[in-house]
Design a protein around this nucleic acid. Sequence first.
DNA 1: CCAGCTGATCACAGCCTGTTCACACCCGCG
DNA 2: CGCGGGTGTGAACAGGCTGTGATCAGCTGG
Lengths: 120, 120
Amino acid sequence: MIDLGPLQIMPGEQLVRVRGRTLMLSIRELHLLIELGRRADRIVSREELFRLAWGRKMRSGDRSVDVYVRRLRVKLEEALPGWRFIHTHFGFGYRLSPEGVPTEGGSDPSQSDDQPFTRR
Amino acid sequence: MIDLGPLQIMPGEQLVRVRGRTLMLSIRELHLLIELGRRADRIVSREELFRLAWGRKMRSGDRSVDVYVRRLRVKLEEALPGWRFIHTHFGFGYRLSPEGVPTEGGSDPSQSDDQPFTRR
DNA sequence: CCAGCTGATCACAGCCTGTTCACACCCGCG
DNA sequence: CGCGGGTGTGAACAGGCTGTGATCAGCTGG
């Protein structure tokens, strides 16, 4: 199991939990998140992400990864308002790492940091 | 990995961390910082820095290095208020070496408030 | 056959970045 | 003290890269 603060990814169980609550994800969304999770805190290129989650080579110009990242962001934001999980590295790819916001009644710092100190 | 106190440069991962938090840098900023890091504590001329980070010869009069040094300074200051990393050597070039805010050195009454906690 | 969902693509808007300028500021030197 | 050149900064630009909403077709269960 991959434990990322409030986010828990269980590849074996084929499910993801946020604060104990199971996230409803489609198979693609799930695989994408799992692969991102396996490389948490590291930058993963679109090509590699596609190869990992789709199992085949990405055709140049394919925006599928972007679209699914978007969908994951929506669902994650919905599950944990104010947190940011998937970070864009312009020209490189994406990186998964939980960043909570300090403006939460009760706060849940877990193990990661909070406060993204650079725009975006 | 290049470990410079609170600053960790990971050329392989294509990312830089400050106190464990990932710094959001553009490709140029990243390469420039990496090359500076590889020569930490040594003075590197603009020409060499440009050649290393841009991969080609610097045209005379090109201010790119200055501009990117500036941007790096802003992001580093933002990530670690009060610290100084990139030092200018007039007529020679730049040198990277982390220096925590010196509470000595004489006059510095205006900005005595360097570390506002650990950023909530 | 219909309704609901999901994967795959598009097209367009908007953001980010690498470059260049222009001008203020600072340094060493005569 | 006045210079001339080096350095610090803020902005403007053109393009490429991403974010996003919508559309379409294939499946599946009812």
